[in-house]
Design a protein around this nucleic acid. Structure first.
Lengths: 185, 185
DNA sequence: GTCTATACAGAGATAGAC
DNA sequence: GTCTATCTCTGTATAGAC
């Protein structure tokens, strides 16, 4: 079965949003990338907003699921968090979800922002749950989980600003050294 | 002496870029905000790119200077870093410089990106220098300085995503607890 | 469901008068 | 140096045939 127009449109939009953001991506761009005709786009998605919502929701869900997979497993809790932090990333591309927070049109739209917010709260909750397994109390685990997620997002910013993936790795290294304590530092 | 057109244009552009980013801000927006006429804009800045360069450079320089001021002083080195991290910030607005890294047009432009990169490398160097005063070796200080800068940038992302300034403060709290060690944690 | 053609606003810039 | 008028291209969407 050939992929249908609707699916191709959403997948093309996801890719373009990851590269250029939502505001900078036009319906025409999506049409060209998907190979679908103009009539089809506006049949499936009456407005650009409808398409954006579908694409952002799909990206947020996929990304959160991947992270959840990594944070679960048999390894020791702290090791799983460190493995999550140190996982290879497309540093120069940036986070497909996090970058959207710089797009004012996304933040100003309740529907789009809810998808982005859901990704981050879901990810933070997951990390916090793993940290609590280490014996940390709930409040400290939440602060520390937010720091874990923030260090990745901030590392992306540094890497993109300097066009040097090493800055993401370096920031993570500095953080992990603090996280694992004097024993490993 | 009344502020001249050129200055008013740059200041208006700085404000608009902080709110909407570079790509999303049109020359017309800048004209309206500055109260200057169209002829003047294109007299002082032949293209939008010229104006963007002037405005981004000004913002990067101002922001870096402000940070330097905070990181110098008589307090103990680690206290100065913590004070820098914990300083009140416009969490929902985001970093005026860092947010630009999500704008592909900025990253793809060597001139604009150089201004953004200069801000971050300057800031990181400053933090690293202060951390070395604590006795940390150069490599560890650099990793840790990058983590400090990244935690702020990442905290902004979380705060904007959830529209809740508390997430920036919480991420910083989690990081500072690790940074100041068991003594304060 | 999909196609082509068309509409209309705004972005970015130029022209030429003052 | 500053003004108004104008130009072209693209973003976003609609119309109506197939």
């Amino acid at each position: 079965m050939v992929t249908d127009s609707r699916t191709r449109l959403v997948e093309a939009a996801q890719q373009l949003f990851a590269q250029q953001g939502v505001s900078a991506t036009s319906p025409r761009d999506v049409l060209a990338a998907s190979g679908v005709g103009q009539g089809s786009l506006y049949h499936h998605f009456p407005t650009k907003h409808d398409l954006a919502l579908a694409a952002v929701a799909a990206t947020a869900a996929e990304t959160l699921e991947a992270a959840r997979g990594r944070l679960q497993g048999d390894a020791a809790p702290l090791d799983r968090v460190v493995a999550y932090l140190e996982r290879p990333r497309d540093a120069l591309g940036g986070c497909r979800v996090g970058r959207l927070t710089a797009d004012q049109a996304v933040v100003d739209d309740d529907g789009l922002r809810a998808e982005v917010a859901g990704y981050f709260t879901g990810l933070i909750d997951e990390v916090a749950a793993v940290l609590r397994e280490t014996g940390l109390d709930a409040d400290a685990a939440l602060d520390r989980a937010r720091a874990c997620v923030a260090i990745i997002q901030g590392g992306y910013v540094l890497a993109r600003a300097t066009q040097d993936p090493e800055l993401l790795r370096s920031a993570v290294r500095g953080f992990v050294a603090l996280l694992t304590g004097p024993a490993t530092a």
